[in-house]
């Protein structure tokens, strides 16, 4: 654990989370959520939880993003808020 590195990644994570819920286009929101997942994976690798980081990178950032893109493709990209 390195506190300075940790603080920088945490700030990126918070920026990604705020951007993911404020952007109007749903496909952009899903893409920003993928970036959020990868920052989170970096954070866990920094904390020493390498197994959790591998699982997050493959399962949440990979399969989760694919599922969300498939859902957006089958429904609509527009959103009112």
């Amino acid at each position: 654990m390195i506190p300075a590195f940790d603080l920088v990644i945490l700030i990126f994570v918070v920026i990604c989370a705020i951007a993911a819920i404020t952007v109007k286009d749903l496909l952009s929101a899903v893409m920003i959520l993928g970036a959020y997942s990868f920052f989170m994976c970096l954070m866990w690798a920094e904390m020493g939880a390498v197994d959790v980081a591998f699982t997050e990178a493959s399962v949440s950032a990979g399969i989760g993003t694919v599922l969300l893109i498939a859902a957006v493709y089958r429904t609509t990209r527009r959103s009112k808020d």
Binding site: L26, V30, G64, L68, A71, K80, D81
Partner: peptide, 14 residues
């Protein structure tokens, strides 16, 4: 707070 269902699911993930 959000009205869109996909936004709600993204919030649950976060």
């Amino acid at each position: 707070g959000k009205k869109n269902l996909i936004k709600k699911i993204i919030g649950m993930n976060i």
